[in-house]
Design a protein around this nucleic acid. Structure first.
Lengths: 144, 144
DNA sequence: ATCGTTGCAAAATGTTTGCACAGGG
DNA sequence: CCCTGTGCAAACATTTTGCAACGAT
């Protein structure tokens, strides 16, 4: 069975990139904690657990993790980038509360079919899709 | 029949905001030209047509136009905000080429049903949805 | 030994804001 | 006349980059 670490090492090897302590530390942070996080979260996690990685390296490593397929990058409602790891998750979509920023995940199997149909119609080669619904969650909906 | 200008004036009146030459100029620029544009595009359009509006006013007015429902704001693939006007358009989705940034519009009627179902399941009140597929368009797909 | 990697601080990018003055209702 | 809107420049938030030293292969 392939762990995230093994997958990442393999990815780096194939691209002739190096396995460094910083990259492994960031990988551990990413898979050890949150569901949805941003670069700043990771930096604080690193500091509070005594690991020293710079902000630049975090951004550079996040790009690699996205490229390797281990991470997905989201931007909800025009905000800054947030990430979630894909390990063990199946394809899912998001609702985003514009008040409390809560994220609700859901699945909608029909989307695969829709994506395939439209991609083949336009000879488009899809890499990624996102279906997001933004609005008020049940706790934040105004009563008017 | 309600023109964009009439709709915008009505919106401003209801919110007790003022109809200013700058706001009307931006509205004209928005509806006079592009399908998808960003704040910088508008600024250049304004300059080349001899109208003088500041960047700050453009951003402030774009917010109002989005709030009034005349404009939709998109962020494709984590990039900066781009807008498109809604006037006369029906609901549509986008494919986004990560190489040339071309946008291909398409419609998928099933999405309305999916959105309704999931929203009611989670007691979520949707304001906006976006279904985006990013990848390679037919002109940019690598041949490997 | 080579060449990719790191940290730092500076730069770049996109957007928002404080303030004094202008001008619409 | 009041109070919102404007322009400007500075502030802001996030992300990227140049460079010298470092270190994995």
């Amino acid at each position: 069975m392939a762990t995230e670490l093994e997958i990442f090492r393999q990815f780096l090897k194939e691209k002739l990139l190096k396995v460094t302590p910083e990259r492994e530390a960031i990988l551990r942070l990413v898979f050890g904690t949150h569901e949805h996080f941003d670069a700043e979260d990771l930096l604080m996690d690193a500091r509070s657990s005594g690991q020293r990685v710079s902000k630049a390296t975090i951004y550079r490593t996040l790009d690699l993790l996205v490229e390797s397929g281990l991470l997905i990058r989201h931007t909800f409602d025009g905000r800054h980038a947030r990430y979630e790891h894909i390990y063990g998750h199946k394809n899912h979509e998001h609702m985003f509360c514009i008040i409390c920023h809560r994220i609700i995940e859901f699945t909608a199997p029909d989307l695969n079919r829709i994506q395939d149909e439209v991609a083949s119609q336009f000879k488009f080669r899809p890499l990624k899709r996102s279906f997001q619904i933004s609005g008020y969650c049940s706790r934040c909906a105004p009563s008017d």
